[in-house]
Design a protein around this nucleic acid. Sequence first.
DNA 1: TCGACATATGAACAACTGTTCATGTATAGA
DNA 2: TCTATACATGAACAGTTGTTCATATGTCGA
Lengths: 127, 127
Amino acid sequence: MTSTSDTSCEQDIFCDVPMIHEGTVREVFEAMPDDGLLFDMAEFFKVFGDSTRVRILFALHQSELCVCDLSALLSMSQSAISHQLRILKNARLVSSRREGKVVYYSLLDDHVKDIIEVGTAHLLEKK
Amino acid sequence: MTSTSDTSCEQDIFCDVPMIHEGTVREVFEAMPDDGLLFDMAEFFKVFGDSTRVRILFALHQSELCVCDLSALLSMSQSAISHQLRILKNARLVSSRREGKVVYYSLLDDHVKDIIEVGTAHLLEKK
DNA sequence: TCGACATATGAACAACTGTTCATGTATAGA
DNA sequence: TCTATACATGAACAGTTGTTCATATGTCGA
């Protein structure tokens, strides 16, 4: 504990770093969600942060599709599509259903639509 | 043009890849937004896909803060915070205001709150 | 049982990302 | 003008990510 007992900073957490508005920082700190939630939220949005996955989600928003349809639609290899579908499945955004040799994927969750809509709204805001 | 005039596939775009439901694929293809929008959307969500940036956004959602406050609050170097703030600024999610030596950052956009709320809703859904 | 087909998956590799470190810029006060 | 402070930024580096390639799994029909 290198105590730089100079100006502010009583006895707590923020002591290594200079800080200008200690009161405000303390209040904001109390209001912060726990790190687990913040981490999970970042992991969740990371899934939307790739254009292949976004295109898959848009496509499935129109219709249930099998892997080779998606592969043809997006002009990408079957392997690449499968890998991305696994990520989407782990994030509980899509579900799959096997029918013979074919596996059909569809959206699992209404939030996908909401999220995409908020995203578009932001992007369409001018300037 | 390697024409595999075998089963389906008339004369168009999807011809290199096997495809099971040509009609559906064609419909979905027509309904897809242009690649530019899809790319921008992925770029936009990529910004939310890092826990440092998510924490900064949560903090600024509580109060306007300067760089060194954020640095203290999140226990991270001033440099790291500055780099991330630049990314958030480029995404038009935060704005800055200088007052003497100090630069204050605040949320620029109401969509941030919406997006965070939809994300939490998804994460809190059980199972 | 065997081959054809739809899909899944592990390894490898290039491209990208976030942090640190060093340094530069801007402002206030002495 | 000189120093201290708050912030910005470029280079470097380690860790991560998305694709390809090769191969494995599962299902159907002959």
